[in-house]
Simulated assay, not measured.
Amino acid sequence: MSATQTPAKPRRPKPVISGRTSLSEHVTVKIFVLAPLVAMAVAVPFAWGWGLSWLDIGLGALFFVLSGLGVTIGYHRLFTHGSFKAKRPLRIALAIAGNFAAQGPVTTWVADHRRHHAFSDRAGDPHSPWLFGTGPRALAKGFWHAHMGWLFDREITNAERFAPDLLNDRDIRTVDRLFPVWVAASFLLPGILGGLITWSVWGGVTALFWAGFVRVGLLHHVTWSVNSICHMIGERPFTSRDKAANFWPLAILSFGESWHNLHHADPTCARHGVLRGQIDISARLIWLFEKLGWATNVRWPTPARLDRITVAH
């Protein structure tokens, strides 16, 4: 460096927050959150008065699996953590399937979750249950905040800092732009299928209710429970810098996401349930994608990889 040159100023990291949600965005979030909740609240009297058919259950299960795996395999393990690489058609399909869960566009979801890992259970974490203290009232407030409260009054995570790769991905930008279309399809397709299969308007109405609204509400609570319950109670066989824990009752419904302790100890690992008897449906499907040649560079929990994780005793 010559005497006339001045040293370059160090770059400041981009801010964590890029702003606050607008009124229209705030209303939209409330609709996506509250409408399925209302459906779940009236599910029992609805079933008592008008019944629940096997077709409704079948369509609900189909779309629950489709949208749930879109979140766990697509939004979470692929786009957030890069646990594997996927061929372009699979990437796009997983992104659309994740949109069917009505939990936000890919880039928004990923930015929030990467921020969660960057500040897990500390100031800056968008949905930690431990931000208000450890007393009973503080934990009750923290549980509500982590489970769903953070969705109603929250800052916008800076995607330029936490998800620049997705902002530069043309395919994902297109999928994100069509988020309202995918959500509408997620609700309407079960209703259309129910109406066509039963050849009745009522068959479409019940399918829309059960496989649309109730299914989305149930999936929302499963996802939110990983944020709340799995950071409060459960087993912690591996050490991590936060309170992430395994909660086995959610293992099936969450497609393996509730083996949360290993995930926070080794976030990029493609399999979360690494111990004996831990069922991880998402990992099994990634394994199938790999066998079919649709997924590559899968970060499996090899013995050498697990040796790098300190086991708690």
Rank of each mutant, 00 (worst) to 15 (best):
2 S>K: 13
9 K>G: 03
21 T>F: 08
24 S>D: 10
24 S>P: 01
24 S>E: 10
24 S>N: 08
24 S>V: 15
30 K>A: 12
30 K>Q: 07
36 P>T: 10
44 V>I: 14
46 F>V: 15
47 A>F: 00
59 L>P: 05
60 G>T: 09
65 V>G: 04
67 S>G: 05
68 G>L: 04
71 V>N: 00
72 T>D: 01
75 Y>H: 02
76 H>F: 03
78 L>F: 07
80 T>H: 02
81 H>N: 02
83 S>E: 05
85 K>V: 15
87 K>N: 13
92 I>G: 01
95 A>E: 03
98 G>H: 13
101 A>V: 06
101 A>K: 14
108 T>H: 12
113 H>S: 00
114 R>V: 09
114 R>Q: 03
117 H>M: 06
123 A>P: 05
128 S>R: 04
132 F>S: 04
134 T>W: 08
136 P>F: 11
136 P>N: 08
137 R>W: 14
148 M>E: 05
153 D>V: 03
154 R>S: 07
155 E>F: 04
155 E>L: 04
156 I>S: 02
160 E>A: 11
163 A>F: 02
165 D>T: 03
178 L>P: 10
188 L>D: 01
190 P>I: 09
194 G>F: 03
196 L>M: 13
199 W>P: 04
205 V>P: 00
208 L>W: 09
214 V>C: 13
218 L>P: 00
220 H>R: 11
221 H>V: 10
225 S>A: 15
228 S>E: 04
229 I>G: 13
230 C>M: 12
230 C>R: 10
233 I>G: 03
235 E>A: 15
237 P>A: 11
252 I>K: 11
264 H>W: 11
276 R>Q: 09
278 Q>L: 10
280 D>Y: 09
282 S>P: 02
283 A>L: 14
285 L>V: 14
288 L>T: 06
290 E>H: 13
291 K>A: 14
292 L>Q: 07
296 T>G: 02
301 P>T: 13
302 T>S: 13
313 H>V: 12
313 H>Q: 12
